[in-house]
Amino acid sequence: MNPPINLLNLNIPIIQAPMAGVQGSQLAIAVSNTGAMGSLPCAMLTLEQLHQELITIEHESKNPINLNFFCHKKTQLDDSEQVIWFQKLQPFFDEYKIDTHHINLETNRQPFSQAHVDVLAEFKPKVISFHFGLPEPHLIEQLKSWGATILSSATTLEEALYLQNHQVDIIIAQGLEAGGHRGMFLTEDLTTQVSTLALVPQIVEAVTVPVIAAGGIANAQGIKAAMALGASGVQIGTSYLLCPETNTSLLHRQALLSDEAKHTAITNIFTGRPARGIVNKAMRQLGFINSFTPSFPYATPTMSALRKEAEAKGKNDFTPLWAGQNTSGCTLIPAAELTKLLAKAL
Rank of each mutant, 00 (worst) to 15 (best):
C243Y: 08
P13L: 08
F86W: 00
A178N: 02
L306Y: 02
A214F: 01
R109F: 13
Q26V: 13
Q167A: 13
Y96E: 02
N104G: 02
G175K: 00
L341S: 14
V127H: 02
E106K: 08
P3M: 11
S239H: 06
N290I: 09
I65C: 07
A282N: 03
H252L: 11
I269A: 05
M1Q: 14
H252I: 10
A30S: 15
E141S: 14
M1I: 14
T187M: 07
F132L: 03
T248D: 09
L151M: 14
T300S: 14
T156D: 02
S232H: 09
N2Q: 13
G237N: 03
G24R: 13
L47P: 07
S295H: 15
I269W: 01
E337Y: 10
E337W: 06
T246I: 09
I5N: 05
H131I: 12
I103M: 04
Q26N: 15
M1P: 14
R284T: 15
N247G: 04
P64H: 04
G314W: 05
A30L: 09
G215T: 03
A343Q: 03
L346G: 04
R307K: 12
I278C: 08
E141Y: 10
R284E: 15
F93Q: 07
N11D: 15
P41I: 09
K144T: 01
Q110E: 12
G175H: 02
T267R: 06
T327P: 03
I212F: 02
E337N: 11
D78Y: 01
L321M: 03
I172A: 06
K344W: 05
S258E: 03
E122K: 15
I278H: 09
F270S: 06
G287R: 08
I55H: 13
T187H: 11
Q26C: 13
N108K: 12
I128C: 08
T293I: 04
V279A: 10
A225N: 13
A121N: 12
E58G: 11
V31C: 10
A43I: 12
A213Y: 01
V168L: 06
L10P: 02
I150S: 05
V279E: 12
D78F: 00
F132S: 03
A226K: 04
L251N: 10
